[in-house]
Simulated assay, not measured.
Amino acid sequence: MEEKKQLELLYRRYLSNECTAEELDRFLELLHDNEEEGRALMSATWNNTEAVPDSGLVPSFIPSPSRKITLRLFIKAVAAVLLLAGGLYFFRTGWLNLISPVRQMEVKNAAAEHKQVQLEDGTRVWLSANSNLSYPEHFRAGNRKVQLEGEAFFEVAHDAEHPFIVSAGPVQTTVLGTSFNIEAYGAKNKTRITLLSGKVSVSLQADKNNQQAIILPNQQVVIDKQAEKLHKVDFPQAGVFLQRRLGFYVYKGTALAEVIHDIETQYDVKIELGHGLENEIFYGNLDMTAAINQSLDKLVTVGGAKWKRNGNQYVVFRSGND
């Protein structure tokens, strides 16, 4: 009896376009659970009721009809579309998105800038320099999906019923609850996904054939976008990303060319490495949130090197070769 009264009340609010998104969701649930009562309720009114959409809900590119449309005709048309689309679930989701669209959020980091973002579900994201993260203000439907260009470290809140998906170009990473790092800069040929805890599924959508790999902690997936190849490797030093997500890079015997590559990415600059320095090894820590001259000053402690600015780029060279 209580549900019948609630159905009648929400139906009246629906006809007068006064339903909130939550009330509309409840109204559709009651219609689904009380089909007989709902049909009787509608049949008493729909022949004489005009369906007039709220202002602003219909896109400008859809012409506005001059003739009146009865609610019965409107409901029949919508019902036909819903049957094709897949049923009540999609009906409810579609109406919610129409009446109360989810706002798309975007975070953009500049050179040497790092930010921490907390999503609605409790997931935390550490966004690296020169990176973009796009995500909905509220998650709906069956999954939690975000888009990334650049690099980010994720601590995903566990939710077994709603997978968390990170889309980065042709690469899609799916998890339930875990911590991992994704490096997916658009200008770079290789994308890397490194896992610290949990379990991750990585898929590559390629023209030749789609590929998939599942990785465990201390493993990494490397994707060659040009060759459209995906392979999995062990990566025991995965813990370095706990510091790297904050902009602190730890090097324990890393080739100088690789360190230069990181500096270029973080500061969005070009660095020319002088002859004979490519294979020099660097030990040390670099704070990529500091000014670039501080990072370069630390870098040139290797092999008696120096650095200078030459126009729009930097040059690292050996003393006496300038």
Results as ranks from 00 to 15, higher is better:
266 Q>Y: 11
266 Q>G: 06
266 Q>V: 02
266 Q>N: 13
266 Q>K: 12
266 Q>W: 09
266 Q>I: 00
267 Y>H: 06
267 Y>E: 03
268 D>R: 15
268 D>M: 02
268 D>V: 00
269 V>F: 10
269 V>S: 07
270 K>T: 15
270 K>V: 08
270 K>W: 02
270 K>N: 14
271 I>D: 08
271 I>K: 12
271 I>Q: 11
271 I>V: 14
271 I>C: 04
272 E>W: 00
272 E>S: 05
272 E>P: 00
272 E>K: 10
272 E>N: 05
272 E>M: 00
273 L>R: 15
273 L>W: 12
274 G>T: 08
274 G>A: 01
274 G>E: 10
274 G>V: 02
275 H>G: 00
275 H>A: 10
275 H>N: 08
275 H>D: 08
276 G>F: 04
276 G>S: 10
276 G>E: 11
276 G>D: 09
276 G>L: 06
276 G>Y: 05
277 L>S: 07
277 L>A: 04
277 L>Q: 08
277 L>M: 11
277 L>G: 05
277 L>D: 07
278 E>I: 03
278 E>H: 15
278 E>W: 03
278 E>Y: 10
278 E>D: 14
279 N>P: 00
279 N>K: 15
280 E>W: 00
280 E>Y: 11
280 E>S: 15
280 E>T: 08
281 I>A: 11
281 I>Y: 13
281 I>H: 12
281 I>F: 06
282 F>C: 09
282 F>L: 12
282 F>A: 14
283 Y>I: 07
283 Y>K: 14
284 G>K: 06
284 G>Y: 09
284 G>T: 09
285 N>P: 00
285 N>L: 04
285 N>D: 10
286 L>K: 04
286 L>V: 06
287 D>Q: 10
287 D>V: 01
287 D>C: 00
287 D>W: 04
287 D>A: 07
287 D>F: 06
287 D>S: 07
287 D>M: 01
288 M>V: 03
288 M>R: 07
289 T>K: 15
289 T>V: 00
289 T>E: 06
290 A>L: 05
290 A>K: 12
290 A>C: 02
290 A>W: 02
291 A>R: 06
291 A>V: 04
292 I>R: 13
293 N>M: 00
293 N>G: 03
293 N>H: 13
293 N>L: 04
294 Q>L: 09
294 Q>Y: 11
294 Q>I: 08
294 Q>H: 08
294 Q>P: 02
294 Q>F: 08
295 S>G: 01
295 S>M: 03
295 S>R: 05
295 S>A: 15
295 S>P: 04
295 S>E: 05
295 S>Q: 08
296 L>Y: 11
296 L>K: 09
296 L>R: 05
296 L>D: 09
296 L>S: 06
297 D>P: 02
297 D>A: 14
297 D>Q: 13
297 D>V: 01
298 K>C: 01
298 K>L: 13
298 K>E: 14
299 L>S: 10
299 L>I: 14
299 L>W: 12
299 L>E: 13
300 V>T: 15
300 V>I: 15
300 V>W: 07
301 T>L: 09
301 T>Y: 07
301 T>A: 09
301 T>P: 01
302 V>M: 06
302 V>S: 12
302 V>C: 03
302 V>I: 15
302 V>H: 11
303 G>M: 02
303 G>Q: 13
303 G>F: 00
303 G>E: 14
304 G>H: 14
304 G>W: 08
305 A>F: 05
305 A>Y: 07
